[in-house]
């Protein structure tokens, strides 16, 4: 029993292995990019527009609004990273309705990659927004005693992100796999539907958490008096 698509290897050159995770990721990338290209090839700037353009606009403005609600006042700076995270994880879950497909997010390697991406993106956005000095100072606040705890928190939340997504996606695929052996009719379909829901929720959770971490890192802390006034 395979737990992860990493284990399905198509080509093996020692360290370099072309496994199902990478192939499925390429497939997802292809669909996302080609779909975007086709839809955005003829974009309308007038009042009338195509249904697909409407869908994309709803999606993008929805993401933008969510980012803004989390506390990032300029969502367009972050929409590329956070939006792509969401779309990638969501579409990875969505395609589980195709038989034989395994979501690349069901591989710990992929989720670790995404979590590392967040781990890098948080200080990157924090530094660009606040400057290096101010960003580093956030680790010794309220006092320098908090420094190790802050560092541990950084690491642990990254780990949590990776494991949470992996656990959810893997378990979904796993449950379906097990159920298929027990009762091959109807029940797996219900579980697939449940898996779709879980996948969407996970995509939302992952990107929202990333947004929250970025928001926490980019927020310029104001003195208490000023905050109170504000």
């Amino acid at each position: 029993m395979r737990l992860s698509p990493d284990e399905l290897i198509f080509l093996d050159y020692g360290f370099v292995k072309l496994n199902a995770t990478i192939v499925y990721t390429w497939g997802l990338m292809l669909i996302l990019v080609v779909g975007s290209m086709i839809i955005t090839r003829k974009l309308s700037v007038t009042q009338t527009r195509s249904r697909w353009q409407n869908l994309l606009e709803i999606l993008i403005t929805g993401i933008e609004k969510q980012i803004e609600e989390v506390g990032l006042p300029h969502p367009r700076k972050y929409i590329n990273f956070l939006g792509t995270l969401f779309l990638f994880i969501a579409s990875a879950s969505l395609f589980t309705i195709i038989p034989g497909y395994e979501p690349p997010t069901g591989s710990l390697s992929t989720t670790v990659t995404l979590a590392l991406g967040v781990f890098i993106a948080v200080p990157y956005f924090g530094i660009t927004e606040q400057g290096l000095g101010h960003y580093l100072k956030t680790y010794i606040k309220p006092t320098f005693i908090m420094l190790p705890f802050n560092l541990i928190s950084e690491l642990s939340r990254t780990l949590a992100l990776a494991v949470r997504l992996f656990g959810n996606m893997m378990s979904g695929a796993m449950i379906i796999g097990i159920l298929l052996t027990i009762s091959p009719f109807i029940f797996p379909i219900i579980m697939t539907m449940l898996g779709l829901l879980t996948g969407m929720v996970q995509a939302y959770i992952f990107s929202i958490l990333a947004a929250v971490y970025i928001a926490a890192a980019t927020r310029v802390r104001k003195p208490k008096a000023e905050t109170a006034k504000a």
């Binding site: 990493d6 360290f15 370099v16 292995k17 496994n19 995770t21 990478i22 990721t25 390429w26 990338m29 996302l32 990019v33 975007s36 290209m37 955005t40 974009l43 309308s44 700037v45 527009r49 353009q53 994309l56 606009e57 993008i60 367009r76 929409i79 590329n80 990273f81 939006g83 792509t84 779309l87 990638f88 690349p104 591989s107 390697s109 992929t110 670790v112 990659t113 995404l114 590392l116 991406g117």
Partner: peptide, 28 residues
């Protein structure tokens, strides 16, 4: 290796999505 490959894939995806999705749609 998969981690590295996925990181590259993700970076490429980021660039492509920016190029073909967010930029044109937001522009529109």
């Amino acid at each position: 290796f998969t981690v590295i490959a996925q990181a590259v894939n993700f970076l490429v995806l980021l660039w492509l999505m920016k190029r073909f999705l967010y930029k044109p749609v937001l522009h529109a």
